[in-house]
Computed example of a mutant assay.
Amino acid sequence: MLAYAIRRILMLVPVFLAVSVIIFLILHLLPGDPIDNLLKVGAPVEQRTEMMARYGLDRPLPVQYAIWLGKLLTGDLGTAIVARRPVADLIGQALPHSLALGGLALLFSSVVGILLGFVAALNRDRFLDRAIMGGVLLGSTLPSFWLGLLLILAFSVQLGWFPVSGARSWSSLVLPVLTIGLGGTALVARITRVSMIDVASRDFVMLLHAKGLSPLRIQLRHVLRHALIPVVTILALRIGWILGGAVTVEVVFARPGLGTLLIKALNQHDYPVVQASLLMLAMAVMLGTLFGDLLQAAMDPRVRGALA
């Protein structure tokens, strides 16, 4: 198990380097640069040349990348060109808001999704099963930004139950968490249902019925426990995707998170901030995948046996 964990961690190194190259090249090949947001209209060419040299933007792209990567490996995320503040400070202010939103959304989708999938599996091919699966399928197809606007219109504007935007209280988290969590709920519910139906058809479940155990006890203590292995793996993989999906939701609800910081920096072409923000989101996906693989190996004896 330890050897497998080390191999999986080492596999992240080339992925990290490839992602960093892609992020760097995409930003620098797009038209425009942060100097446009610093200079006044009609500024002389000499002033632009001086500022390009000050921020190292006049150097060849390979040199710029090498400098950025070298600082990154030492923990230096650089300084925002437009905001003129350390990028680490900006990330440190925004990240807790994104983590709180993503963590609560993951918890919501886990609990509600497993519960709906469990009820649907118990009522397989009945009206309740079809109603639950139809409802979660509808919820998963709604774009998050559109769902967020609908929730704002219904619960903030019309009913006045929750704040329209901001992050001044915990009540402001309710609508964003629902917006992000509903899509994950559909995925978890479907996987839970399919996994429970598969486990319920195995021989050991028939043996438990033959021993006279109650059907509900069998479903709760045996079938659900085995069915949660793929569900937990999927939830671990969704850690990074939830943080990435929070970008548009944070903009809709005007939350001061990583998504809002990223969109603002993109509009300003602030390279250090955009690069750091995108790298944080990519690292969340990679670490979530790693955590999911390690968790599956720890929970499933068959995987551990294949690794031995």
Rank of each mutant, 00 (worst) to 15 (best):
L266M: 15
L278C: 07
M280Y: 12
R124C: 09
F253C: 11
A3T: 13
A100Q: 14
A297Q: 09
L69R: 04
F127G: 04
L25K: 01
Q296E: 13
Y271M: 09
R84I: 00
S165K: 10
R54H: 15
I26M: 12
V21K: 12
I23L: 05
Y4N: 06
G113S: 07
A83F: 07
V119I: 15
G32H: 06
L207K: 10
S20P: 05
H97Y: 15
H222D: 11
M11F: 10
I81W: 06
M286K: 06
T185P: 09
V21I: 15
F291P: 00
Q268E: 14
S140N: 13
V164S: 06
V252F: 05
M52F: 11
A308I: 04
T141H: 07
L72G: 07
Q158I: 05
Y4Q: 04
V232T: 08
A100I: 12
F118A: 15
V251L: 09
A100V: 14
T74P: 00
P272I: 06
G117S: 05
I152R: 01
P96N: 11
A265Y: 08
A18M: 14
G78S: 02
L287A: 13
V82Q: 12
T141V: 15
A189R: 02
A200N: 04
S140D: 09
T179N: 07
L262M: 14
R130M: 12
R255I: 05
P163K: 12
D76M: 04
A121M: 02
L279G: 07
L10R: 01
H226Q: 08
R85C: 08
D33A: 01
K211R: 10
L287C: 11
V111Y: 11
A53D: 13
V285A: 10
A254I: 07
